[in-house]
Computed example of a mutant assay.
Amino acid sequence: MHYFEVTVKKMSNQVNTIAIGLSTTPYPYFRLPGYHENSVAYHSDDGRKFHNDSDGGVTYGPTWGKGDTIGCGYRPKNGVVFFTKNGEDLDVAFRVLQHTWYPSIGTDGSCELEVNFGDSDFKFKRARGYGPGSPLLSEHHRSFVALI
């Protein structure tokens, strides 16, 4: 499994949507994840999931915003993509998606996000030790703050 989490620290009044998910390369910088071919995402404004879809997505989970932590996981053996909110599993979002995926985050306004690539302090406890770069990361905490 590969997994990462994003915590929303601040949102400006102009932010309508934050999208967290996975995409392949190259990916157009001007499209939110989930909207373009070979991308998936969970969107903050309506709680919908998107896969190659800019036409409205599919009902999936609750909305989210400032103070929430959203996780994105991928199980390459069966192509399952799932999301979490504040450490709670939201269940499978997509099945049988076999790509070389990259963590992807997009927003339509400015915000401050903390991105955690593992390992010991994931809110989703079953993912502790797993990150996007290797099957098991046991000694390194990898995170950064992104101002988008």
Rank of each mutant, 00 (worst) to 15 (best):
L22Y: 10
G133S: 13
T107R: 02
S39N: 06
V58C: 07
G73T: 05
T17W: 05
N16L: 09
R95H: 14
S104F: 04
E114D: 11
V40S: 08
P135C: 09
S39A: 09
T24M: 14
D55W: 08
F94P: 02
D68H: 10
D45L: 07
G131I: 04
V96L: 14
F30L: 09
R31L: 13
F117Q: 04
F83G: 01
F30A: 08
T100D: 14
G56D: 09
P76I: 12
V96M: 14
K125E: 14
R75N: 09
T25W: 12
E112P: 00
P33E: 11
P26L: 07
E114G: 00
N16A: 06
V115Y: 01
H99F: 15
S23H: 04
V80I: 15
V58G: 04
C111H: 01
N86W: 04
G47D: 09
Y29S: 13
I70K: 01
G65C: 11
F117G: 05
A41R: 02
D45V: 09
A19F: 05
G129N: 02
T69G: 03
T59C: 06
A41G: 06
Y29P: 07
G65N: 09
G56N: 06
Y42C: 09
R128Y: 02
Y42L: 12
L136M: 03
G71E: 01
T107M: 10
P33M: 11
H51N: 15
G109H: 07
G129H: 00
G57T: 07
P28A: 09
P62I: 11
G61H: 05
F83N: 03
T59F: 05
Y60S: 07
L113R: 03
D119K: 06
G73E: 04
G133A: 14
S54V: 05
R31G: 02
M11W: 01
T59L: 11
R95L: 14
D55E: 14
L90T: 10
Y74G: 02
T59I: 13
I70N: 00
H43A: 12
Y60D: 06
D53I: 12
P132N: 02
L136P: 00
L22M: 15
D45I: 08
P135L: 11
K49I: 12
G21W: 03
G34T: 08
V115A: 00
P28V: 08
N52E: 14
I70Q: 00
F30G: 03
D121K: 04
T17P: 01
E112A: 09
S23K: 03
R95N: 15
P33D: 12
G57K: 04
I18E: 01
F82L: 14
F117K: 03
P33H: 06
S110Q: 13
L97P: 00
K77F: 10
T84F: 03
D108Q: 07
R75F: 04
T84I: 09
G47P: 05
W64C: 04
K77P: 04
D68F: 04
I18P: 01
N86M: 10
V115E: 00
N38G: 08
H43T: 12
G129K: 01
K85E: 12
F124Q: 01
Y42Q: 10
T84H: 02
V81H: 00
L97Q: 11
T25M: 15
F124S: 03
G61K: 04
G79I: 10
F82N: 08
L113V: 13
D68V: 09
F50L: 13
T17G: 03
D53F: 05
M11F: 03
D119V: 08
Y29H: 12
Y35C: 09
N16W: 04
P132I: 05
E114L: 09
D45K: 08
H51D: 14
